[in-house]
Design a protein around this nucleic acid. Structure first.
Length: 744
DNA sequence: AGCACGCCGACT
DNA sequence: GTCGGCGTGCTC
């Protein structure tokens, strides 16, 4: 960098939290060394804003007289290192999102607002259940939902291996933050004890039985595939129970042992608290946990402890990807196929893809773990761009479950249930095992309709049918949340209304009639609405022998259940024949993930799929032991259509308050896209979005597709500049989604 | 995104 | 006469 003469004012280029796709130049104070990565306070129009210096010592294109001066320098040293700023710059360009929002969005809210970075913090103390507490829990003496949830979470070796958790981790498991006073009160009653964070040597090895068990040859091979200096991404493909977590932990141990930090990304902390808890148990006092359930101060402290290098392992959801690590050594993306890694509004980044990029920039390996990797990841592994480490055998030696189809044309379902499924359930329950029944629609009935005049209950804000919910009876829109009372009679003709289609609530009722003696638990977004309910339900499932659990895809997510003998999938056809880009892929993933719940016991499990199309190639190819073989027809289909991973997509959505405006403006938005489109870039649309009206707004969409990523991005870039010259009404919004997960 | 400036309708 | 409606344009 050339020295600037002492007389010329030094100029810094600053990112600010405004949707403007450029940086702003300021004169930096003559007496202070303002370096890239530091936060500054700058005048912006009539106000002052917090910004991040992206470049320093630059010359400005601006007329020097128009430059204003930095008002205040907020950091003594940079809080965003070079590599992260580079990652954020890349992210802004790749996803075509304003750089300032990207950069400021990477900071915890407290830092975004200009608060100082806290000094080194004392580590969070760890909480554990006392002997007395265990007895009280067993005797039912722990009264109060909240108190019981806390003690139960700490007492459960699945949620708290090692029996000790700090408050932020507990918050992730409970889905709410227990107040310090709540914990203290439990300690005063003698049920909990509080210990200072200990050294790793204090952890009893029996805290996690997997830590003592030798690795299988496949696990060992995966751990050994991670060689220092080799920064290639690694796909760890393993079914549930194949011991992926133990592989992550052993890799992390090696990385931490050589003085480097580990970042672990997980899809959603509330649904999979076990991984976070196991990591916490293996690296006590050295883990920072970052998730949306944290209070602002806690989030700031966790972020700062990672940034200062105190936390050696950082575990977090999507946005934790942007945590600074002074000594990075490894990034793990667990359940890499999960759509939760894609941000669905604003800066629409995919944390999995940006994790790969971060790995490149930091020259460290990235491990992608899944039983059902995305087609993008499988293809990269097939081409040798990623190292592929399969874990085919389960450490407990059990066989993968058998997957069988039940032909619903032969066996007509009653309330969603066919006789072969009911018979299989009967047998499973008789054997003392559990049955999981999966239906991807919550509520009671899918629609409310009049058989007499054809009226159906529609949402007044969206293009969607209202779903009938039982219990507190309401008709609910699953798109916008609008709800209204369920009418007794048809508002048009007064005839009796029919409740059509099946939801989890109705299925639950039907199952209760078939199996009146069997404990029945429902698990969906409605049943776990109140905080800690998921943990309670999981706890109950684990405590039972024969039982039926009915629920949505939530059932198939990472929880560990030892006694599931049978998984029934009520309706797979919906996913197989949906027009959406990834519907079939997601259905296969769901089936395999669900199958992973079955047969952890010695008996081996069964999966029954109810379908009207048992001859469908994807159904015929189902084999829980070989996902790669299962998805081959999908890959062939994508290759033919030029869809990912064989081509690249971007979706442009134009939204307005009325349908006409949306349509005409979408046309104006499409024109520069067409004009900019290089050869090999296709522009499809505009067309009404599959969900045309949502929340009283109308949406049109344009799909841009190309086999050449660079050509696609050049097109988007050029079109975007043309859009800036467009005079659109304020209410019209253009949203650009690069690498969309769904076209709906 | 904010926020100010600016140019036309019903109020003290 | 003026308070305020939100259309348009700028922010180093």
């Amino acid at each position: 960098m050339p020295d600037t003469p002492a007389s010329a004012p030094s100029i810094v280029r600053v990112a600010i939290d405004r949707p403007l796709n450029r940086l702003f130049d300021y004169r930096s104070p003559p007496d202070r060394d303002v370096r890239p990565g530091m936060r500054v306070r700058v005048p912006f129009g009539p106000t002052r804003l917090t910004g991040v210096v992206m470049e320093a010592g630059v010359t400005s294109e601006m007329d020097p007289g128009r430059l204003r001066a930095v008002s205040e320098v907020l950091d003594a040293t940079p809080i965003l290192p070079d590599s992260l700023r580079e990652l954020l710059g890349f992210g802004g360009r790749y996803y075509h999102h304003p750089i300032g929002e990207v950069v400021l969005g990477a900071l915890p809210p407290a830092l975004r607002r200009g608060r100082p970075l806290p000094e080194a913090a004392t580590p969070e103390p760890l909480w554990a259940v006392t002997e007395q507490g265990h007895r009280a829990l067993a005797d039912g003496a722990v009264r109060g939902e909240r108190q019981r949830a806390i003690v139960a979470a700490l007492a459960d070796p699945d949620s708290a291996p090692g029996g000790r958790l700090d408050r932020p981790t507990l918050a992730g498991i409970l889905g709410r933050r227990p107040a310090p006073r709540e914990l203290e009160r439990l300690a005063e009653r003698g049920w909990l004890e509080c210990r200072p964070p200990e050294h790793p040597t204090d952890v009893p090895p029996e805290a996690d039985s997997a830590a003592a068990r030798p690795l299988t040859p496949e696990q060992q091979a995966a751990v050994d595939a991670l060689t220092p200096g080799e920064a290639r991404p690694l796909l760890l493909e393993g079914v549930t129970g194949s011991g992926k977590t133990e592989v992550y932990l052993r890799m992390a141990e090696r990385v931490v042992a050589r003085g480097e930090q580990v970042l672990v990304l997980i899809p959603e902390i509330a649904l999979t608290p076990q991984l976070a808890a196991r990591i916490q148990a293996r690296f006590p006092g050295r883990v920072a946990l970052l998730h949306s359930g944290l209070a602002e101060g806690e989030r700031l402290r966790a972020w700062a402890s990672a940034a200062r290098g105190e936390a050696r392992v950082v575990v977090g959801t999507r946005s934790a990807l942007f945590t600074p690590l002074p000594e990075p050594g490894l990034i793990v993306v667990d359940e890499e196929h999960d759509a939760a890694f894609k941000q669905q509004d604003g800066f629409r980044y995919n944390a999995r893809d940006l994790a790969i990029k971060r790995g490149q920039l930091e020259a460290i390996p990235v491990v992608l773990g899944s039983a059902t990797p995305t087609l993008e990841t499988l293809q990269a592994a097939r081409q040798g761009r990623y190292t592929h480490c399969p874990l085919r055998t389960r450490p407990d030696g059990t066989a993968p479950p058998r997957i069988e189809a039940v032909d619903t044309r032969v066996h007509t379902p009653d309330e969603g249930l066919t006789s072969p499924l009911l018979d299989a359930m009967q047998a499973t329950l008789a054997g003392g095992q559990q049955c999981f029944v999966l239906l991807n629609r919550r509520g009671y009935a899918r629609t409310l309709a009049c058989d007499h005049c054809g009226w159906v209950a529609d949402c007044r804000h969206c293009d969607a049918r209202l779903t009938v919910h039982a219990g507190n009876p309401r008709a609910v829109c699953h798109l916008c949340g609008h709800h209204e009372p369920v009418p007794d009679r048809c508002p048009e003709c007064g005839a009796e209304l029919a409740r059509r289609g099946l939801g989890t609530q109705r299925l639950e009722q039907a199952l209760a009639r078939h199996f009146p003696q069997t404990p029945l638990i429902r698990l969906d977004r409605d049943s776990i609405r109140h905080k800690g309910a998921l943990e309670e339900a999981l706890e109950r499932i684990r405590s039972l022998d024969a039982a039926i659990v009915v629920g949505t895809q939530m059932l198939a997510k990472g929880h560990d259940f030892p006694r599931v003998g049978l998984v029934g999938v009520i309706d797979v056809d919906q996913g197989l024949y949906s027009v959406d880009l990834r519907a079939a892929e997601h259905t296969l993933q769901l089936i395999v993930q669900a199958a992973g719940r079955a047969g952890r016991g010695e008996a081996g499990g069964r999966v029954l799929l109810q379908t009207g199309h048992p001859e469908h190639p994807l159904i015929r190819g189902l084999d829980a032991a070989d996902y790669t073989a299962m998805v081959r027809p999908l890959l062939d289909e994508r290759a033919e259509s030029g869809f990912p991973p064989f081509g690249h997509l971007a979706l442009v959505r134009v939204e307005a308050e009325d349908a006409n405006t949306a349509e005409t403006r979408a046309g104006e938005v499409a024109t520069p896209l067409r004009r900019a489109a290089a050869s090999g870039v296709r522009v499809l649309g505009p067309a009404p979005a599959p969900r045309h009206r949502v929340n009283r707004r109308y949406r049109e969409q344009i799909l841009v597709q190309s086999g050449d990523r660079r050509a696609l991005h050049a097109t988007l870039h050029q079109a975007r500049r043309a859009w800036e010259g467009l005079t659109l009404p304020r209410e019209v919004r253009i949203a650009l989604d690069v690498d969309p997960v769904s076209l709906a």
